[in-house]
Design a protein around this nucleic acid. Structure first.
Lengths: 223, 223
DNA sequence: TTATTGTATTTTGTATACAAGAAAATACAA
DNA sequence: TTGTATTTTCTTGTATACAAAATACAATAA
């Protein structure tokens, strides 16, 4: 099993720390799909009692990252090719909505923020730290979702994007693809700045399609 | 506080029974927005220990129906007018996606199922049992989501629709509006049967818009 | 060999005990 | 009366104990 370690924060309840720890491990693939989440084992590894472990598992379960069968315990949720297709369809619909909100409606300040987020992402790519790349990519997209002003949309998109990140880590390591991601981000910012909805939509779809393509290959390779 | 009672199911862990009980109470408005969810009180009312209560609260929290502040406990989440607008925007985007899937693609059997679900809904309206009306309305829409074949879409839509049901109960009591809901459902089935995407979209949007209108009034009246 | 039964072990489910933090009540001084 | 300590009470957070179910596995019979 993965090597788990808690980063204690004195004021956060242990259940939240445990939740974040397990969640990270799942999203990064350190806890593998199908792997059992046994309470005592996790409690031993993390040096806490079963109570916070159980509460964290309930949270993961609700989020779709774990599946529990009553009296059999929990395991890391599996993600299939079909799941991925479905998630991407939903994402396309919601990214389209996001573009309806932002095209022609972002303030110059928001666009500046977006450009900045894009630059920070490029720097992360230059650094080569995959954790950071992943994080900065998410942040870039979050700037857009926040600009929509629709909090619900933002939170659903965050969930979706994080669930996808279970697979993104794999391809974010390939430098060639990262160059392409940068180009697509730039194209998207340009489109948003132009204020033209159709342009925005095209840039978004291009970005999603190429990402989906690569992730599918990763999943295929993993089975 | 609401009068809670557990419907024990021998094989379901108590946490799940408690979760469903609390969730229902919140969605029906028996537990009011902002109301505190105190562990001992709930445990006493439901005749269980704090452990399953806590796990149920963690699930509600993850679902957005409860908010917990560390060391202060949990309370029923509040829903504002703005929240409602946001949820409806998301729902519109996803219903549009659903229509893309189903228009022209539903089998005769699926359409028959849909007509049947519609009929059952009408019967529920005739009965006047608001719990049943609510349930049959949800089931009608679920037939469509299931026909898309996209499980993710289905589960997100279910969540959204259930969250909205926190307010639907109020207006489902008014007979005049129910007549309109029936008409809209029929129009939607006809549109789907015609296979014309644009017709489907219009029928869906009409349904959503009129629902949103009424719910907004209910919220306004509640504040 | 294959099923089946019984037993030991593991694991989850639930209750409870105790610690610690937050809120409320009380006491006291200005 | 108002403001501030101080104590008390309430509530959450965490650990642990015990019960009950599931599983693993060996012994037995077909």
């Amino acid at each position: 099993m993965a090597n788990l370690e808690l980063v204690i924060n004195d004021y956060l309840p242990l259940r939240d720390v445990v939740y974040q720890t397990l969640r990270n491990a799942i999203l990064k693939g350190e806890l593998k799909p199908g792997e059992r989440l046994m309470e005592m084992k996790l409690a031993g590894k993390l040096g806490v009692s079963r109570t916070p472990i159980r509460e964290a598992i309930r949270m993961l379960e609700q989020e779709g990252l774990a599946i529990t069968i009553p009296r059999h315990g929990a395991q890391v949720a599996k993600m299939t090719q079909k799941d991925m297709d479905d998630v991407y369809e939903v994402r396309r619909a919601l990214e389209t909505l996001a573009m309806k909100y932002v095209s022609g409606n972002m303030t110059t300040e928001q666009i500046a923020d977006l450009r900045y987020a894009e630059k920070v992402f490029e720097e992360a790519v230059a650094d080569g730290d995959s954790d950071k790349i992943e994080q900065k990519d998410t942040e870039f997209h979050m700037v857009i979702y926040e600009a929509t002003g629709n909090m619900r949309l933002g939170s659903i998109m965050t969930t979706i994007s994080e669930q996808l990140s279970r697979y993104r880590w794999a391809y974010l390591l390939h430098h060639k693809q990262l160059k392409q991601v940068i180009d697509e981000h730039r194209a998207l910012v340009d489109a948003i700045e132009s204020g033209d909805y159709e342009k925005c939509l095209k840039a978004t779809m291009d970005h999603l399609n190429s990402q989906e393509e690569i992730i599918k290959e990763v999943i295929k390779a993993n089975n």
